[in-house]
Design a protein around this nucleic acid. Structure first.
Length: 294
DNA sequence: ACTTTGACCTGTGCGC
DNA sequence: TGCGCACAGGTCAAAG
């Protein structure tokens, strides 16, 4: 589910409790998620101390005192929650018999005491791996720049989009071009930048290879929308200890995503939000105030 | 080399 | 109420 802002929110919720905690035990309730758990996962974790919780794109990176790193991707329905003493409350995906709590870390933190960290994942599109060298990992090596970093700007994006005939919607979902955007935020940033999702990506680049004004707007929109979403997620962190982190995913209200048939919220625009399917994914947009590149 | 499609899973909500 | 179908925020392999 989680796109960059949601994963960042999870990271911020986990970091204060995991950093400095010692892993006393690890339970795996099945052999695989999307991929098999590494054979030595539990033994590699037990006895180690967490030295930090990072994020790259939509991946969580949990660093261990051994020097190894746990890579965790939440897929569509992955979620972490804590259980401090007593039986853990099931997640809302857990009402059906069987449940979806696939991995449980038992941790001891010098300040927070003993607690469990539970990973649940209904659809099991998530996965967990153990990396000795994150920089060399194929999952991470091919990722494009972080959209909130200095490495991401309009000239960069222009260079990557020049000549591409694929719709801008599809290009922005390509993690090799820009890391961390998913279907919701791509819809949102294109809406904010007033660009139709169907525009051929290369149309946003001028003949000399420089970004056209709409592409400058798009870069600004990407930064603004993500920053706002992270800020909104941060406001839910107060509850992270008791909740499952899932709440934050949807707390944020969207301006175009999933609003088919509703009025466009752009000031002065009288359009109605439409929905089309691109690359098998829903695109929501306003056919009035979102335009092709001039 | 490029893009699109199907596959992986389970759950929910809608129309009939 | 029940049933079937469409759909869901991600990614990868395979097919075009």
């Amino acid at each position: 589910m989680p796109e960059l802002p949601e994963v960042e929110t999870v990271r911020r919720g986990l970091a204060p409790y995991l950093t400095g905690a010692r892993i006393a035990a690890v339970a795996l309730n099945r052999a695989d998620l999307r991929f098999a758990f590494p054979a030595d996962l539990a033994t590699a974790l037990v006895g180690e101390t967490v030295t930090g919780v990072g994020r790259r794109a939509k991946y969580l990176l949990i660093a261990l005192s051994s020097g190894e790193t746990v890579l965790s991707h939440l897929g569509m329905t992955g979620a972490y929650r804590f259980a401090f003493g007593g039986p853990a409350e099931p997640t809302r995906h857990h009402r059906v018999p069987g449940g979806h709590d696939h991995m449980v870390w038992s941790l001891v933190h010098p300040d927070h005491g003993a607690f469990d960290l539970i990973y649940s994942d209904t659809r099991r599109f998530g996965f967990i791996d153990l990396l000795s060298d994150p920089a060399e990992n194929p999952y991470l090596a091919g990722l494009g720049p972080e959209p909130l970093s200095n490495a991401f700007d309009a000239p960069y994006l222009a260079a990557r989009l020049a000549g591409r005939k694929a719709p801008i919607k599809t290009a922005l979902l390509d993690q090799r071009i820009i890391a961390g955007l998913g279907n919701i935020y791509v819809c949102e940033v294109l809406y904010r930048a007033h660009i139709l999702p169907t525009v051929p990506a290369g149309d946003l680049v001028a003949g000399d290879g420089r970004p056209k004004p709409p592409l400058e707007d798009l870069v600004a929109a990407i930064r603004a929308v993500l920053a706002e979403a992270i800020a909104a997620g941060g406001s839910t962190l107060r509850d992270f200890r008791a909740a499952d982190g899932e709440r934050g995913y949807f707390q944020h209200s969207f301006t175009v995503y999933d609003r088919e048939g509703e009025p466009c919220l752009t000031p002065g625009c009288r359009g109605t939000i439409a929905r089309i399917v691109q690359s098998g994914r829903s695109s929501f947009f306003c056919p009035v105030c979102q335009k092709s590149a001039e």
